[in-house]
């Protein structure tokens, strides 16, 4: 898990790499006048350089301070790029809870799945392909700000905005409306925590699947990705993002649908 997170953060490497790389001023700065025998000389940095390094945390928001908002309410829409022949889109709502170092997101979306030309052709054959029927997706995500600042919008007609680059990690839980039909309360409780859907649930979903679809048994999976939060002065924000379903839980969920890309847009208001 830690290695994979580190892999993700590598993608955000440039944001931090700038901090590691000496600035031109740093390179050209005259050497500090210290005695040659001073053992701390290799660790000494000039005051103006230190100020420049911490300026991002010492004086963060200029246009909108999202950390001081209480809650965000937003609508989401996304297109799922699965590695099969079925089409899927999602639409739903989201609640975001800001913190000083992160932002927690709780989302509920309806995922609509429909046939493509390919899957319609596939249904004529004695072959099936893993997929997921219509469902609710329950998301629990954590956003970690990687870089942020005030940016100028184009065209200049728009005011300056607050831009935050977030890394996202979290779980996506699939809720199938007809999946628990005919199950006892005890079986439902057991199924909720089971990473794999039970035989009863799979049987119940037979009528909900598309003709060429073999129902994928995964109940929940791990998501990670990147996205930008663009805040306007009044608290209105737009957040395009790209998430990937990583196969970290695949051995437990027995899924064959991995590396699904979720390209989504979140539009909402911070309060």
């Amino acid at each position: 898990m830690i290695r994979r997170l580190a892999t993700l953060l590598l993608l955000a490497g440039p944001a931090w790499a700038q901090e590691e790389t000496p600035t031109p001023e740093e390179v050209d700065a005259p050497a500090v006048d210290v005695p040659e025998e001073d053992p701390l000389s290799a660790y000494r940095v000039r005051f103006d350089i230190l100020v420049d390094r911490t300026i991002g945390t010492a004086s963060q928001p200029v246009v909108f301070n999202w950390r001081r908002s209480t809650v965000h309410a937003a609508a989401t829409g996304s297109f799922l790029v699965e590695l099969n022949t079925f089409n899927s889109m999602r639409a739903g709502g989201m609640v975001r809870l800001p913190g000083q170092r992160s932002i927690v997101e709780l989302g509920l979306s309806w995922a609509e799945v429909w046939d493509s030309q390919s899957s319609r052709q596939l249904a004529y054959t004695p072959y099936r392909q893993p997929g997921r029927p219509d469902r609710f997706d329950l998301d629990v995500m954590v956003g970690l700000p990687l870089a942020e600042g005030v940016v100028t919008a184009a065209p200049r007609l728009f005011p300056a905005t607050q831009l935050v680059l977030n890394g996202y990690v979290g779980l996506r839980y699939g809720l199938y409306p007809t999946g628990w039909g005919g199950m006892t309360p005890g079986q439902v409780v057991g199924a909720i925590f089971n990473p794999v859907m039970t035989e009863i649930e799979l049987d119940n979903l037979e009528s909900a699947r598309l003709d060429a679809m073999e129902v994928d048994p995964q109940r929940y999976g791990f998501m990670a990705g990147l996205g930008n939060d663009i805040y306007f002065e009044q608290g209105f924000f737009v957040s395009p993002r790209l998430l990937l379903s990583l196969p970290l839980l695949a051995p437990a969920t027995q899924t064959r649908l991995v590396m699904t890309a979720d390209a989504s847009v979140v539009i909402g208001m911070a309060f």
């Binding site: 596939l122 072959y127 392909q129 893993p130 590396m259």
Partner: peptide, 18 residues
């Protein structure tokens, strides 16, 4: 490692006979 993970996981989902 990330490249290997992608090579193992990024392929299209196969078709299975009924």
């Amino acid at each position: 490692a990330a490249l290997a993970l992608c090579l193992l996981s990024c392929g299209k989902v196969p078709l299975t006979p009924v």
